[in-house]
Amino acid sequence: MMNFIADLQQYDFLQTALITSIMVGIICGVIGSFIIIRGLALMGDAISHAILPGVAISYMLGINYFYGAVLFGIVSAVGIELVSQNSRIKSDSAIGIVFTAFFALGVLLISKAQTATDLTQILFGSVLSVRQSDMIITLIISIIVLLVVVLFYKELLISTFDETMAAAYGLPTKWIHYVIMILLTLTTVASLQTVGVVLVVAMLITPASTAYLLTNKFSVMIMLAAFFGALSSVIGLYISLEHNLESGAVIVLVATCLFLLAFIFSPKQGVLWRLFRSKNKGML
């Protein structure tokens, strides 16, 4: 523990990694809460894959990959919506069609852009190599995401819980959906650095699911999810340093451990408690 703190003071890269991964943990928890409640877990996975062509094009143009990634994330979200709204295709199939197409395009473009080397970093992330400039972009993204959620919390809550009522009294529910998709894209792009495409979905879903098991209040769920996301990042980073392991993977596994603890011990939803209750009932 002391080593960790000493290392933190000594190594700039560790500070950058820690700050970035905490921010990513927080916004993943917040957006993840909306995603799992809205049944869009697959959407998170889809967007993380669909941004690949954007990354390739950004490299070709020599600009930061954030811009291309965000653009393609939004384009794919709109594409999925267009397919599922304008045909009888169900939304999970629409997601499957659109994101695989984008991912395939991304694979082609990446090989054309001669950036096969970068593909690994995009797929698996490398929080320890986060540059100062990337950290600042992550910070900006985090501020945007949190600000939107705080300012429009009322509208987001009601359209997530009861979209029909929200639409009935005149909220632009379709636009709200797109706003959430944009926030999801921003969050996903920010997470690429810490955990990469393959594991983003874990950061979105696992801490939020952990929180979901522990509370009956959506606002509390969001805060808990953010807390668990950040906690997973800190502990994960710590363990990965102590044992010289791949940080992204460790962060995800820590998040999974937290989920398992909640799954077993949660006072309301926990497996253990349920077992106990059903036994007592049996005895009565």
Binding site: I37, L157, I158, T160, F161, D162, T164, M165, A168, Y169, G170, Y212, T215, N216, K217, F218, V220, M221
Partner: peptide
């Protein structure tokens, strides 16, 4: 006139597992 109309959806349209209390549901 939308804000002057209240709509009560069918029970099957609601996600009853949503983390929300009775009090806060009414507050909506």
């Amino acid at each position: 006139l939308r804000r002057n109309i209240a709509y009560v959806p069918q029970r099957s349209d609601i996600d009853w597992d949503f983390p929300i209390t009775v009090k806060n549901t009414v507050l909506l």
